[in-house]
Structure formats: structure tokens, C-alpha cells
Design a binder for these strands. Structure first.
Lengths: 108, 108
DNA sequence: ACTTACCGTAAGTCATGACTTACGCACTGG
DNA sequence: CCAGTGCGTAAGTCATGACTTACGGTAAGT
């Protein structure tokens, strides 16, 4: 059920940019805030959401907090996605044939 | 770049429920609307968004429109996700060790 | 041709949530 | 011990978007 939070989090463009920044490696809040067109508190709030979704972890480092991606957080999302690939792909094959078959009544 | 639309779409709970319903197979708008706590036009609008994101396709069938999942729509999302698994996983291993290492000054 | 079923779009309402500024707390260095 | 730095939270504002009802358009049955 935790994939829901992950999706809802990554659905936001700003949070996605934040998450993608962290892909390059760990970074503090201040560093992340620079390079983004929003205030530092906004970044804090986004990081809080990402943390709640299990997508990132943080570690205190002196007076600052360093955030980094938790790969395990993407696990449930990956599993959820695979459920569609398997199940939906076979259904899809049955559909594509029909797409030009039974349309509205042909009126020549 | 299309993974952005997919994420933004699936970020919405109602759209997710809709998408998961379609996993069981194709269905018309009216059928989908029943079983969801929203009006039929709302479902139409959600389906429009899903279609724009390339996640579903539709086919006319008489007076109704049948929607079904397009597995290819999930492709970009999958690719995007993998980029994190590969890249972030190695970064993560370097981080976990530090998590208890350099904290705030120990004050015994 | 007329009615009925099914759907998409338009227009308007309302709540969610993304942002801001202001504040208080924890840690570090002089 | 006293600034200064870095951060999280609170409170308030404002736009986005998710929903509604109303309408028009297409296809099928009689």
C-alpha cells in the first residue's frame, strides 16, 4: 500500500526535481534549495513528504541535515508496476485486434 | 519526458483506482463509473488525462467507448525508475555507513 | 423519423496543497 | 558564553485541479 504514497509524492514536479537531484548523491537542505526556484522551507516540506513515503533518508551532519535516496523506497513502486506489465500486456493483445474491427456501424 | 505525465496522472488516487480497474480488462465509461464514488463525467475527465499520458487507449463500440490499458505507456516510467535503482543504489551503500558515524557532537 | 442510451465538453464551485514569511531550536566556532 | 549558521514548524495566502450540473452530439432500436 505504500506505493500509493510514493506515487503521490513523485507526482509533484518540484518533488521530482528534488528527488532527481538526490540521484547524483547526498546533499544538505540548503544546497538542494539553491538550484531550485523555491524557498528553503518549501524544500524542507517536500523532503518531509519524501521521507514519509520512504523514498529518502536523512542523517545529521553537524548543524545541517544531509538527505539521500533510499532505494528500498522504490521497491513497492516497482512491484506495483510489474503487476501491470504482466497482467495488462496479455489483455492488451486481445484488444488491439478489435480496435479496427467493431467500430460504429459502417455507413458507406 | 513523458514519464512526468504518467507520474502526475497516477499520483491521483481516483485515477489510480480507475487504472487498476482497467487492469482486469477493458471496460466502458459507464461501467467504470459504477463502482466509483464519483460522477460519470468525472470519470470521463480522468480517462482523458490517462489517455493524454499514453497510459490508456480507447475504442468505439457502438454507442459506448471502451477503454483499456496501453502497456507501452508504462515503459518510460519503468526506464525512469531503473535509472534510480542503478545509480542510487551504489550511492546508498556509501551513505549507510556514515549514518551513525558523524552525527552531532557527542556530549557525554 | 423519434426516442433512448452513452458519452464528451463547458462552466462554475470548492477543497486541497504548494508556497510564502516569521519564529524558535540545535549545533559550531570564536 | 555569545554570535552565527542551518534547519524544521506554524500560520496564512493563493492557485491548481477535482468535482458537480447542464448541455449537445452520435449511434442504435423501433
Amino acid at each position: 500500500m505504500t506505493y500509493a504514497l510514493a506515487l503521490q509524492c513523485l507526482g509533484d514536479p518540484m518533488r521530482r526535481r528534488l528527488f532527481e537531484k538526490l540521484r547524483a548523491g547526498s546533499a544538505s537542505v540548503g544546497v538542494l534549495a539553491k538550484g531550485l526556484p523555491v524557498s528553503r522551507p518549501a524544500v524542507s516540506q517536500h523532503l518531509k513528504a519524501l521521507k514519509r513515503a520512504g523514498l529518502v533518508k536523512d542523517r545529521p551532519e553537524g548543524t545541517r541535515r544531509v538527505y539521500f535516496i533510499d532505494p528500498e523506497g522504490l521497491g513497492p513502486l516497482r512491484v506495483w508496476l510489474d503487476q501491470f506489465w504482466d497482467r495488462a500486456l496479455e489483455s492488451f493483445k486481445q484488444e488491439v485486434g478489435k480496435t479496427a474491427g467493431r467500430g460504429p456501424r459502417r455507413t458507406p
